[in-house]
């Protein structure tokens, strides 16, 4: 009886200890986690405080504490801007195009590379595809201008061969969007394939052997073994990509756009740059940024919810 009593009294203490024990056991791992956590707290969470300037008439010399509070006035100003809805539409449209065509591209290339027999050739191709990722948009825009130039570009020679009148495609609203999406895919194709190639190595080779024995061809193997094998990675990257939907490519568009295509290429980020930051309207810029983040949050949670519905793991 007494022993039981003693046991009962000690129970809470033991339980607390048992909860702490695994932490103590892995203390080195937690210690290693600390710098990463600290990074997020210092550089990501604490600066969140700055959001308040969206609700202020912010003045850089007075600072956040002394600037005047204006409530939702800045947001009203943003939404009242004549072209705001056009700009929002452009942002979504360009971004959706980029996901629609740009997201599957690295998967296809990774699958193709995976089938290559010659290891050296594979590495060679992979490196070349990978290089444009390191070139800045300013340089790429110069390359695009030079290729597309109707007066002295490569394309103008092609036009001449076919006996057609050279056109300035960069000043054509339809062509401009295609150029935006295509140059974006070209730049980041190689970078995107790396993750898929890594995921492909995880697929169990015995499955392919079994499939070959059963008489499945390359197509069947790709469809029934390879793709399901990397499905979780695809879904994960898609969710992350959807979270970036509001970023339609600031640098790229800023250096490539011109007056002739402004109405199809002005996006929220370039708009913020021109009317917020360049004019010193920091509150304006923050308000648009906050609006951006709110939509991105909804999108990422939506994508997460859908992926869970389909029985995938998702992010959380």
């Amino acid at each position: 009886m007494e022993t039981v009593h003693t046991y009962k009294r000690e129970k809470p203490a033991t339980k607390r200890l048992s909860r702490l024990r695994p932490i103590y056991k892995d203390r080195h791992l937690y210690l290693m986690l600390l710098p990463g956590l600290l990074f997020f707290v210092v550089f990501k969470y604490i600066p969140l405080y700055g959001i308040v300037i969206a609700f202020q008439d912010y003045d850089i010399f007075r600072g956040i504490r002394e600037s005047e509070w204006v409530g939702w006035a800045t947001f009203k100003e943003v939404f009242a801007y004549s072209d705001f809805w056009v700009i929002l539409g452009n942002t979504l449209q360009i971004s959706v195009y980029k996901i629609l065509f740009g997201f599957p591209a690295p998967i296809v290339v990774a699958l193709l590379l995976n089938e290559l027999g010659n290891r050296y050739f594979k590495k060679y191709v992979q490196t070349i595809l990978y290089l444009p990722h390191f070139i800045s948009w300013v340089v790429i825009s110069g390359i695009v201008l030079t290729i597309m130039s109707p007066t002295n570009g490569v394309l103008s020679i092609l036009y001449e061969w076919f006996g057609m009148e050279p056109k300035n495609l960069l000043a054509d609203p339809t062509a401009f969007r295609i150029i935006l999406v295509a140059s974006d895919i070209w730049k980041d194709l190689g970078w995107g394939t790396i993750i898929y190639l890594a995921a492909l190595t995880q697929v169990d080779p015995s499955l392919y052997e079994a499939a070959t024995v059963d008489g499945a061809g390359k197509w069947k193997q790709t469809w029934h073994i390879t793709l399901p094998g990397i499905r979780n990675v695809i879904v994960l990257l898609l969710i992350l990509r959807i979270g970036l939907l509001m970023n339609a490519g600031f640098e790229q568009i800023l250096v490539m756009q011109n007056s002739a295509v402004l109405e199809v290429s002005e996006i929220l980020d370039t708009f913020v740059f021109k009317f917020g930051l360049q004019q010193g309207n920091y509150s304006f810029a923050t308000a648009v940024g906050l609006f951006n983040s709110a939509i991105a949050l909804v999108l990422i949670l939506g994508a997460q919810w859908i992926s869970k519905k389909f029985g995938e793991e998702g992010l959380m």
């Binding site: 801007y81 011109n258 002739a260 402004l262 009317f275």
Partner: peptide
């Protein structure tokens, strides 16, 4: 509200280019 002028100038440039072309 000088920002208005920046906005209008951008709009003008856009429309002028369309008319020239």
């Amino acid at each position: 509200n000088n920002t208005k002028q920046v906005e209008l100038d951008q709009y003008t440039g856009q429309q002028y280019v369309k008319m020239i072309m």
